[in-house]
């Protein structure tokens, strides 16, 4: 990276490059890439926290177990609060979604790691899955009554066609904003850290300032990664609630 000395030697996007690690140098659809490696690592971390941690079944939880319980019951209560008691049927899916995103985000903050949630392919696929699942659930549960979500009965009749268009657009924009929010946040945070790191490399002794900035941004990112995982999940719950109770 350092052999070519140009005035702008910062490559904040390098960290998002997907490289095959096993099964040949050329990227195939089945290649084991750095992204796959970090998915595997997050899977191991999830198993550590949620299976090895609480294995002793303590009545009064230890450190590991209370973390696991906290996350578990946080998501559970959130679903009940937003989507009602029927939403609890979909708890395993939503919980899987949450810990997949949460661990991807948090592990992505480690130096030299790869943030798989910063890729629009991943978040877009997740958001599209949520969108399709919610739409299907809505039609299966309510039949054509699901369309009441777009035809707002409490509005004046003259306004309803206008609202219909607005509601339809906002409904179909959902997966886009849902996925870009997460990927964009992750990408932005990591790119900012990388840009500051580039400044630090170029400034010699004056690098203290960017290093302080990196520390501050890192602290902010710690907050952001958790909040983004939370927001992705809570929006999934809101959409699920729309599918289960389209009347309001």
């Amino acid at each position: 990276m350092s052999e070519e000395k140009t005035s702008f030697n910062i490559h904040p996007m390098d960290q998002f490059v997907i490289e095959p690690l096993l099964m040949g140098d050329k990227l195939q659809w089945y290649s084991f890439t750095n992204q796959t490696l970090w998915m595997l690592i997050s899977l191991v971390a999830i198993s550590l926290v949620f299976i090895v941690g609480p294995r002793k079944h303590q009545l009064i939880p230890g450190r590991f177990q209370s973390v696991a319980e906290l996350v578990y019951f946080f998501i559970r209560d959130m679903i009940v609060e937003i989507a009602g008691q029927e939403g609890l049927r979909y708890f395993p899916y939503i919980f899987t979604l949450f810990i997949f995103i949460l661990f991807g985000n948090v592990l992505g903050l480690l130096p030299y790691s790869f943030t798989y949630t910063s890729h629009i392919a991943i978040t877009g696929f997740l958001a599209l899955t949520v969108f399709l699942a919610v739409t299907i659930i809505g039609f299966v549960k309510n039949g054509l009554g699901f369309l009441k979500l777009f035809w707002i009965g409490s509005a004046p009749l003259a306004l309803r066609p206008v609202l219909l268009i607005i509601e339809l657009i906002s409904y179909f924009v959902r997966p886009i904003s849902h996925s870009i929010r997460l990927a964009g946040n992750m990408m932005a945070g990591h790119a900012v850290i990388k840009v500051f790191a580039g400044f630090a490399g170029a400034m010699g002794i004056g690098a203290i300032a960017p290093i302080f900035a990196i520390t501050a941004v890192y602290g902010l990112e710690m907050l952001v990664v958790v909040i983004q995982a939370y927001v992705f999940t809570i929006l999934t719950c809101v959409y699920l609630n729309d599918a289960l109770h389209p009347g309001h």
């Binding site: 959130m78 609060e81 937003i82 904003s177 870009i180 929010r181 964009g184 946040n185 990408m187 932005a188 790119a191 909040i227 939370y230 927001v231 809570i234 929006l235 809101v238």
Partner: peptide
């Protein structure tokens, strides 16, 4: 608080869109 976070998410998404345009 959940409602607040949803509101934050909606407001923030638009900022992320502008960042995305820049990128």
């Amino acid at each position: 608080t959940a409602t607040m976070f949803i509101g934050i998410a909606f407001a923030e998404a638009l900022g992320i869109f502008s960042f995305l345009v820049a990128l």
